[in-house]
């Protein structure tokens, strides 16, 4: 009997968990279930496990269990209080050597990307970045199901499915919001296993002298319920006033396509798409956005997509749940009026 462990890196910074961790626990659970039958036949044990590093973060380990982890490896040490590449990758590589996970998922956040490449190299294994689809599937010539990791390549024009036949763990990074969060079960039980880091402050090498918090607008569009996004069709920086007005009426935030960011009409944190944020709000309004592939990959998982575009052939209509062919400068004010009227009617 062997253990088939599906690992998820539980990313936290200064005690705040990045929600991508809960999304990945959901993925890991699904992947684990895909091998359940095969494991039962050979008497293997399948488990979903979290790896959590930090200082005084035990509460988070408990949370992870409620999001579906059977087990959490907790490395709690002052040297890990702040994320730094060296102590983190070394600690993780050591626990991975010890427990031999089969699959290891890491969020493709700035922190996760910094970490994943280092861990994979330290473990001398393969890593597939920015996956948009993950399955445990049968692969010709392999005795067990393997992780089939699908990711966009060449500017999103092609989807490539990648497997890692021999090396373990099979590692993938996944961008936030590509998958929904795992269900939360307050009654779930699991175990927390404490591990040692083995890295000293000297071994950590680099030292963070200072944190500078940006004053400029740091919107968090990834986790907003409503996004109203403008594209080149808004015509200029002034055009975003109209977008903002609708976002305000809907209680949402403003998103944008890349050309608007490149042209300096709006700041990068607002960018949606392959080189911007991946989002999956409840409602996404795309106004004056043509719907290029690279934009669509960032928003097509939204629950409800409203497209406004003057060109009836704009590809954005292919992903929209409902579309309006028309001038956004006429349609949006009418929408705002309607929203205000309906709100009025409710009180």
């Amino acid at each position: 009997m062997t253990a088939r462990r599906f690992w998820v890196f539980i990313e936290q910074e200064q005690g705040k968990v990045h929600p991508v961790a809960w999304e990945l626990l959901g993925v890991a659970r699904r992947l684990a279930s895909q091998v359940a039958e095969e494991a039962q036949a050979s008497g293997d044990e399948v488990s979903v496990e979290g790896v959590l590093l930090g200082h005084q973060v035990r509460d988070i380990a408990a949370e992870a269990i409620k999001y579906g982890a059977d087990r959490v490896y907790l490395i709690d040490d002052p040297v890990l209080a702040q994320y730094r590449n060296c102590p983190y990758y070394m600690s993780i590589a050591a626990v991975a050597e010890k427990h031999q996970p089969e699959v290891f998922l890491i969020g493709a956040t700035t922190l996760g990307r910094d970490l994943a490449g280092a861990v994979a190299t330290a473990l001398r294994t393969g890593l597939t970045a920015d996956c948009t689809k993950l399955e445990m599937g049968e692969v010709k010539g392999a005795k067990q199901r393997l992780l089939q990791a699908t990711r966009p390549a060449f500017g999103g024009n092609i989807m490539a499915t990648i497997v890692c036949r021999k090396h373990r763990p099979q590692m993938s990074s996944v961008r936030p919001r590509v998958f929904p969060a795992a269900p939360y079960n307050p009654d779930a039980v699991g175990e927390i296993i404490a591990e040692e880091t083995g890295v000293t402050e000297e071994g950590a090498r680099s030292c963070i002298l200072e944190f500078v918090h940006a004053q400029e607008d740091t919107v968090d569009i990834e986790y907003s319920d409503v996004i109203v996004a403008g594209g080149r069709g808004v015509g200029g920086p002034e055009g975003f006033a109209v977008i903002k007005a609708l976002a305000d009426a809907m209680g949402g935030v403003v998103g944008a396509s890349r050309p608007c960011v490149d042209a300096g009409w709006i700041k990068y944190p607002h960018q949606v798409g392959q080189t911007g944020k991946t989002v999956r709000p409840k409602v996404y309004v795309a106004a004056g956005i043509s719907g290029a592939l690279q934009h669509k990959v960032g928003m097509q998982n939204s629950d409800f997509i409203i497209a406004i575009n003057s060109d009836p052939n704009a590809p954005i209509f292919e992903v929209a749940d409902v579309g309006i062919v028309g001038d956004l400068f006429e349609v949006i004010p009418a929408m705002i009026k309607e929203i205000e009227a309906r709100k009025e009617a409710r009180v």
């Binding site: 092609i158 989807m159 499915t161 497997v163 890692c164 021999k166 990959v297 097509q300 929209a320 409902v322």
Partner: peptide, 20 residues
């Protein structure tokens, strides 16, 4: 360790209704 197992074009999602 990694090999490209399959290549394909992204799937087309289902289009919704459009009003002009």
């Amino acid at each position: 360790p990694t090999i490209v197992y399959q290549m394909g074009t992204p799937p087309l999602p289902e289009a919704g209704e459009v009003i002009n």
